[in-house]
Simulated assay, not measured.
Amino acid sequence: MTTVKYAAEIVKELNRTVDLITEEETEVLVDRILEAKKVFVAGAGRSGFMAKSFVMRLMHMGFNAYVVGETVTPSLEKDDILIIASGSGETKSLVSMAEKAKNLDATVAVVTISPDSTIGKLSDLAIKIPAKPKAGEDSEYKTIQPMGSLFEQTLLLLFDAVILRVMNKKGLESGVMYGRHANLE
């Protein structure tokens, strides 16, 4: 198969996966983001990269949005939301964050393959991305891609769709966001 044909197959997989995401769950996430004082996002590995891109867009819209673990990240408080991106929902460092956030009475949301995971059970909201787990487990969701690629790509698309929905609900245009874009590059 050629590179372009691989890309076309990846797009087909993404379409199938996005069609299976529950609209009601994503709308709740949008509303929780709009209600929060601060938005914190965490993820490990490639999921963490997707989470960082989401925080960047939230910042462009004027939200107090932070990546957990950065030196400029403030304290999480009661009226805040922690959004965790974790395919397995079992990453130890992320489980620990979810537990701490619950103890602080913050809202916890997870975007995951496994809503019944440890993080899923700790969360106030779990959005399922129906994708194949990284390794070991059989899955009804098939992919030609290695490891967690389908989850991570869908995560980026979902986060970008959440941004568009938040923009829509706040009546924001893209042009306004450019004023907050980095200018020291």
Rank of each mutant, 00 (worst) to 15 (best):
T2L: 08
T3D: 10
K5H: 11
Y6K: 15
A8Y: 11
A8W: 10
V11C: 11
V11W: 07
E13Q: 05
N15Q: 15
N15Y: 13
I21M: 11
E24G: 09
E24I: 04
E25D: 14
T26R: 06
I33D: 09
E35W: 10
K38S: 08
V39I: 14
V41A: 06
G43M: 00
G43K: 06
A44G: 01
G45C: 03
G48Q: 02
G48F: 04
F49M: 14
F49G: 11
A51G: 13
A51R: 05
S53G: 14
F54P: 06
V55W: 05
R57W: 09
L58E: 06
F63E: 01
F63H: 00
T73I: 10
E77F: 03
D79A: 08
D79P: 00
D79Y: 07
D80F: 01
L82W: 08
L82F: 04
L82N: 01
A85M: 01
S86R: 01
E90W: 01
K92P: 12
L94S: 04
A98Y: 05
K100C: 11
K100I: 08
K100S: 14
K102C: 02
L104P: 04
T107Y: 13
A109M: 01
D116T: 12
T118F: 02
S123E: 10
D124C: 09
A126F: 07
K128M: 05
A131Q: 03
K132A: 02
A135V: 14
T143P: 03
I144G: 05
G148L: 13
S149G: 02
E152A: 09
L156A: 04
L157P: 08
L158H: 07
I163N: 00
R165N: 14
V166P: 08
K170G: 01
K170E: 04
L172Q: 06
V176D: 06
V176S: 15
Y178Q: 10
R180Y: 04
A182N: 12
A182Q: 14
N183D: 14
E185Q: 02
